[in-house]
Every structure is written in C-alpha cells, then in structure tokens.
Design a protein around this nucleic acid. Structure first.
Lengths: 217, 217
DNA sequence: CGTTGTGAACTCATTCACAGCT
DNA sequence: AGCTGTGAATGAGTTCACAACG
C-alpha cells in the first residue's frame, strides 16, 4: 500500500540503492591499487554475489570494461550521481540529545556531503547553548530558519510523542526529507520522503536471528 | 551469497520479521480499546497492506478469530515468542562515546528485554568511569567478563578501524550476535549473526529518495 | 585469457479475491 | 455482517549461464 508509484524512470529499487551505497563505501576505503575493480572484488567486499554487483552497476550505464573491470573513480562518481549525493545537502537536527551529538561528531556525514547547519530543541536549558559549533535554537525558529538556511533535510532525534508534530513543522517549513529515529510511523505528504531508523527494532532482529541460528547449528 | 541456509524451519523472511517488530510496537502503543485488533488497523498503523498483515500473522499460527480480529495481548505474546524476545537478552557495549550513551538512555531497549550489563573501551581516560550506572572496563577484560556475565550480544559503537578486531574478540569470548554501527562489513563465523546499522547510508538513501521525488511531483 | 552485460530461469514476496468461520 | 486465512495470480529481485568484447 503506502505511496510510491516509483517515480517516472526510477529504475533502481530500494534495495539496489542501498547496495550502491555499500559499493561506494567500499570503493572509498580500499581506495584502489590499479584504479580498477572487478565485480568479484566488490562482491566480496560488500557481501553479495558478483552477478548481483554486475546487475546493479549495469543499471547505471555501461561503466565497466569487459576483461578489465570498473574504473574505481569513475564508478564512484557515477554512483554518487545516481544517489544524488554528488552535491551538498543541508540538514538540520531536531532534538539535541546524545544521539544528536553522536551524529554531529560522525564524520561519515560530512564526508558524504551532508552539512548539518542548524540545531533545534524545546528544552530552555539547551537553547542558546553551543553544541559542536552550532547554537541550539528554539523549535519556533524552524519556520523562518529552514528557508533562510535553505535546509532540505531534517533529522529527528526526539522522543516518540512529539515526533509527528515536529515532522509537521518541518514539512510546513519546507524540508523535503526526514531521517527519523523516533520509533513511530511519520505521516507526511508524498513530497516529503521519510527514512526511518529504529534502533530497538534492529536489536530485535538480531535476537531473532541469533535465536534461529543458535539451536540449529 | 553469504551464509544462511535459512535454519531448519525458519518460515519467516527477514522482511517479515521486521514487520513483526513493527506490529508489536504498534500493539504496545495504541494499547487497545476492546483488546482486539483487525488486520486493517495494524496495516494502517504500520504502513503496509492489510493482506500483508494477514499473511504475516498467519505464519505464526492461527491467532486470529474470523469476524472478530486478533486478540492484542495474545498476538503480542506470539510475536515476542517468534522473535525470541520473550526472554531477557544480556548485551555489552563496546566503545563508550555519544552513541553508546544515547543507546544506554534509550528506553526502547530495556522495555523489550534487552539488558546492557557491561561497557568496554580502550581509552584509559574512560576506563573506570561510571556511565549510566556501569563501570567502563578495558577491552582486555572482554574474554573473562563475557562468559562471567553470560553476555550473548555485543553492540559495537566504535570507529571502523578497530571494528573487525573487536568483533573477533567478542566472537572469541562467546557472544552469539553483534549489532554493528561501524560502517564496515564484519566477518564472523556463521554462528555469530550480525545486524548492521549504517547511519551514513540511511542519509544517502534519504537523499536518493528526495532526489527522485523532487523533480517529478 | 578475464570480465562485463544480459536473456532466461528461478526464487521469493506481495497482492487479489474469495471461501470459510464467527 | 465482519474479518481471517489462503490458493492462485502477479510482480520483484536474484542467480545462472553464456555470448560479447577488450
């Protein structure tokens, strides 16, 4: 059910896009002996089959050279372009707790072109404070600051209860996407995309898998 | 590729298991008017189709009553049991940074039966410190403490570089599952399951989706 | 040679639609 | 009447296997 009639020519499934991110990561880290990678190498690095890699990469156009492999730099660029991270994305963070602080310190964001340019919180004790070089602003400032700073993405590191209301405020202020850490399903208009990260659910999945694997083998 | 010959009778796919987690969450929060839920209600709460809900729940046995719906309490129990979270899971946390602190405060863990019973770090400045009621221990203590405290799960909130070595140490110490926040693919024996949460990748996926949705609609 | 790109087969997942129970 | 459970249909995603190419 939900929404997505997967956009005009969106040839990439959700899963494929995720794998592209992984390929990209792996290209960056083992940044290349001869400037070229094979599908087998990438497959091994990311933990999928080589056929899968070739199928995924073929979807981006013909970047491989038969008998040789893929040019690492060219491939990285192509992936970044299709994922839409060849440019900068400006984001704000709502809810300045430990998780927010962890995200601010996390270099993975900066590296991939994500700039966190504003912090918001309701707690009067936090407003005005400097956190990782940014001043914490009141939630009410959202409406004017989001357009002012040309913020496109919002990261919600808030409790469940206020999450929907904050999502609504961000939507009204004009953000186009939300990264939600609160364990609730956010309702947004289809123009505002949501990606959810539910930490408790990940732990539950781990328990599930351990339970399965444990008894048997 | 990878491993899983999906365990003897594992009728649940990864995706189904995830949805079960969501149903469970939704059962808890909107904790019930008449003690009964319909597939339509659950579907709406979680954001999937009603048929999907029925298919998922039918896999757990016949807990629904035709013409009536599912008994909320019974359903929650059944889900907890199949997910393996009807009991307590003891976990340790390696790498005591902001993310670790955020996880420790996160009530979602305690609530679902996950007990974090030990903290480890390499930083001498942190060792011995008290964080959220737990003493930070040196990494070397892992080998003895994990069996001693009957720890089954390890949560890795460490940088990429030491992640694999720490995973190895946890494996050697006897943990059965790892929740990995470092953006690297961990190699473990098939007896040690891994669930990975890569925050940068989630942001990338958001950018991708926004990029798709933006131009068109 | 080695390695990509891809039709075809196949497996897994979701939706449809309705019979069957309460 | 209402709502579940499920066979059958459809769709998505993945692997196979090999032709095409440097």
């Amino acid at each position: 059910m939900s929404d997505d009639p997967p956009a005009p020519d969106a040839k990439l499934s959700r899963a494929t896009a995720q794998r592209l991110s992984h390929y990209l990561r792996s290209l960056g880290s083992s940044a290349r002996h001869g400037g070229t990678v094979s599908s087998v190498e990438l497959a091994h690095a990311v933990g999928v089959s080589a056929a899968q890699v070739r199928r995924d990469l073929a979807a981006l156009g013909h970047l491989g050279q038969r008998g040789v492999g893929y040019d690492a730099a060219g491939l990285a660029n192509a992936i970044r372009k299709t994922l839409g991270i060849h440019r900068e994305w400006r984001a704000c963070l709502v809810g300045v707790g430990n998780l927010a602080r962890a995200l601010l310190r996390y270099r993975g964001f900066q590296d991939q072109g994500f700039q966190i340019v504003a912090l918001f919180d309701t707690d009067p004790a936090k407003i005005g404070r400097l956190v990782e070089g940014l001043v914490v602003e009141p939630l009410a400032a959202l409406a004017t600051r989001v357009p002012e700073l040309r913020i496109e993405l919002g990261v919600l590191t808030v409790p469940s209860e206020p999450a929907q209301a904050i999502a609504d405020a961000l939507t009204a202020a004009g953000v186009k996407g939300l990264l939600n850490f609160a364990p609730v399903l956010l309702r947004t208009p289809p123009t505002v995309r949501v990606v959810a990260v539910d930490l408790a659910i990940q732990l539950e999945q781990l328990a599930f898998q351990v339970q399965l694997a444990g008894p048997s083998r």
